[in-house]
């Protein structure tokens, strides 16, 4: 098999040691705003804005911290 990276160097890839797909890694994010329909605007630890589904953790308000995996909050951060 030829080197996949040579085919399309611009393709975004996971950072080493961190897998978007990961079975089991959730990222703590801060809730900035909610829209009332189960979506929240959050920021990840690097300050990148992320749209997050929050149905699984109940009502959230700006300032809450949630653990986010693949666009869904799966738990409240302690």
């Amino acid at each position: 098999m030829s080197s996949p990276r040579s085919l399309d160097g611009a393709e975004p890839e996971c950072e080493p040691g961190h897998c978007v797909t990961c079975a089991d890694e959730a990222i703590e994010m801060l809730v900035l705003a909610t829209d009332g329909s189960g979506l929240a605007s959050c920021v990840d630890p690097e300050g990148v804005p992320v749209e997050v589904m929050t149905e699984l953790v109940g009502e959230v308000v700006p300032g809450d911290a949630v653990l986010v995996h693949a666009g869904a909050a799966i738990a409240r951060a302690a």
Binding site: P4, D8, E13, C14, C19, V20
Partner: peptide, 20 residues
């Protein structure tokens, strides 16, 4: 798909090769 799937080899290449 998520990024890590792109280079997973199948029997006839990977997603990145199919994309190319």
């Amino acid at each position: 798909c998520f990024g890590d799937m792109m280079r997973i080899p199948g029997g006839s290449g990977c997603f990145l090769e199919a994309k190319a």
